[in-house]
Design a protein around this nucleic acid. Structure first.
Length: 536
RNA sequence: GUCCCCAUAGCUCAAAGGAUAGAGCUCCUGCCUUCUAAGCAGGCAAUCCAGGUUCGAUUCCUGGUGGGGACACCA
């Protein structure tokens, strides 16, 4: 039985025992007992919360509930009103045995969704910096997690390949070719020098547009390579120019006009967000007095385009420097006639770079930043991704580069990976000790030690960790979970010998547990885009 | 000035309003003749301040303090 099924079963038993309606069960949840509680697998605090409703002492409710659970569960009421329960050995072993089944984690509420998840979307005006690693980790891991839960999800990287910044990039490259410094406000970074050196001979006669096109194409190649090295493959790289080719902005403007969401003032076309919808505080320009579209209109068109491709839900992941843009975009999506809940922006706080005690400001234009590639080359994708994935999006991250490089071997990722390597090693040693991992064992005779019990229970909790991820829009619950599971394994490993030719039945039973641990570790790491090595 | 985010151990982070607040790094003490010591066992050590809501607050609310970010007919 899955943990969620167990929870549902216990909940319905509580309802029946106290003759309650579904709405009275809102706070009913299973939790792991705190460490000082021995001899319990699961804990329920619901009797305390339900005391008011039932007009009864919490402990009394807990006692009645515990009695109602017998004889299927070993339940105990504990002051001030907790019910602690222990699963029957057979149920526990059977539940764990079900873990590897295809579709185990799927849930109906995710299967109904067709999600577009857009993240990173770094401007193609320079190499990707460190912070892109955070967005990439967040987005890619969330996509993997939601897919496992059954969602249909397409990942997308939006490329702003038109506009003033791109023109400036082209001019900066041209200046480098001519041996000059980039123009005022241009891109000063060193990275344009090798690019200029590699330009074909005929570039001397190029127009500005040709320089821009060339530079953007080269940057895009770098971005794609960086993302690939980081274990991130996008389903689509959507170019802003595609949007213009399709006439997207004009169509979006027409839709907004039709819906009465625009007005003209001082020669410009405005989005009437504040008067119609109160999500934003101020009206914004869509078409400037000079006739050019604002970025805002183009972005509205982009989101309209996503909806028109059949997605029922759009999720964007942005850095905190764009948070002020969220109400505007939400208002715009609402103005397009899309309901609440069809558009979600995940904001992640920025990454501050630290060298020793000093905070370093990163600026792409000034060329002063640590590139993602640099970091990955130094520390490795596994350590980077685990590091980024271990924090919620709202944490303000201080990334100490010197520390990250120096202590790469002490990154918790190795602690988790080591579990996988150790188990692989045990399996490869089994044969020479005359033990067949495929040999079964008699579950009814298995004696479960406390370390094994903790390990088996923990395996069932991955399901909850995944749901926490979707609740928080962050992969960090999986990271925390894996570290905890790893600790339980290493402790078990130290106390119990798995391969014992004298006791083949015990060996087979322990190999069964390890097979499941290995599976969960491998699955969890895969969700984070981290490898599960067989040897370390 | 207005708005958003954050504040937990010396450092980096966990913790659906629940029981004695968990980890990792650092420091200290033990443990390799036995499936990998990238490990185990143990020790030191924390909820920014003041109110409020609640049976119960690290968690929710209000007000401070400190830090980061945003407030364009830029993208």
């Amino acid at each position: 039985m899955k943990l969620s099924q167990l929870e549902a079963d216990l909940k319905s038993r509580a309802r029946a025992a106290f003759s309650l309606g579904e709405e009275a069960m809102a706070g009913f949840a299973l939790s792991a007992p705190p460490p000082h509680i021995k001899n319990a697998d699961l804990s329920i605090a619901w009797p305390i919360a339900g005391a008011k409703l039932l007009r009864k002492a919490p402990l009394k409710i807990a006692e009645e509930f515990a009695a109602a659970l017998a004889p299927d569960y070993e339940a105990q009421a504990v002051p001030p009103g907790f019910v602690n329960l222990k699963l029957k050995d057979a149920l526990l072993l059977e539940s764990v045995a079900g873990l590897g089944k295809p579709g185990y984690y799927e849930r109906p509420e995710f299967k109904a969704q067709k999600i577009n998840l857009e993240f990173v979307s770094a401007n193609p005006t320079g190499p990707m910096h460190l912070a892109s690693g955070r967005g990439a980790t967040l987005g890619d891991s969330l996509a993997r997690i939601m897919r496992l839960l059954g969602a249909e999800i397409a990942t997308e990287f939006y490329v702003n390949n038109v506009g003033r910044q791109v023109e400036l990039l082209g001019k900066s490259l041209k200046a480098r070719l001519e041996g000059k410094e980039p123009p005022e406000g241009g891109y000063q970074g060193e990275y344009l020098k090798p690019l200029a050196a590699a330009l074909p001979a005929e570039a001397a006669g190029w127009t500005d547009t040709q320089f821009s096109g060339y530079a953007v194409a080269e940057m895009l190649k770098l971005h794609k390579a960086d993302m690939k090295a980081f274990g991130v493959e996008f389903d689509r790289w959507f170019l802003e120019s595609e949007l213009h080719d399709l006439g997207g902005p004009a169509a979006a403007l027409a839709t907004l006009k039709e819906r009465g969401m625009t007005y003209e003032k001082e020669g410009a076309v405005w989005f009437g967000a504040s008067s119609e919808l109160e999500a934003d505080d101020k009206d914004r320009v869509l078409v400037k007095a000079d006739g050019r579209n604002t970025y805002f209109l183009n972005d509205i068109a982009y989101h309209l385009n996503k909806f028109s491709r059949g997605f029922t839900r759009l999720i964007d992941i942005w850095g905190a420097d764009h948070h002020g843009y969220v109400p505007r975009m939400e208002a715009a999506v609402g103005a397009l006639g899309r309901g609440q809940g069809s558009f979600k922006v995940i904001i992640h706080q920025q990454v501050a770079l630290k060298r020793g005690e000093e905070l370093v400001k990163m600026s792409k234009r000034a060329g002063d930043f640590i590139s993602l590639k640099e970091l990955v080359d130094e520390v490795g994708t596994d350590a980077c991704r685990f590091f980024f994935a271990s924090r919620g999006p709202n944490t303000h991250l201080n990334f100490d580069v010197d520390l990250a490089k120096k202590k790469s071997n002490e990154n918790p990722v190795f602690y988790v990976q080591y579990v996988h390597a150790r188990i692989c090693s045990i399996f490869s040693n089994a044969a020479e000790k005359g033990i067949d991992p495929a040999q079964g064992f008699d579950a009814s005779k298995a004696v479960i030690s406390p370390e094994e019990r903790a390990l088996l229970m923990k395996l069932l909790w991955l399901e909850k960790a995944l749901l926490d991820c979707t609740r928080d829009y962050s992969p960090h619950p999986v990271t925390t979970y894996l570290t905890e599971l790893a600790a339980l394994f290493h402790s078990f490993y130290d106390k119990h010998k798995v391969l014992d030719p004298e006791h083949k039945e015990t060996s087979a039973y322990r190999l069964f547990i390890l097979k499941e641990v290995k599976g969960v570790i491998a699955q969890g790491l895969a969700l984070l885009g981290v490898t599960a090595p067989e040897r370390m």
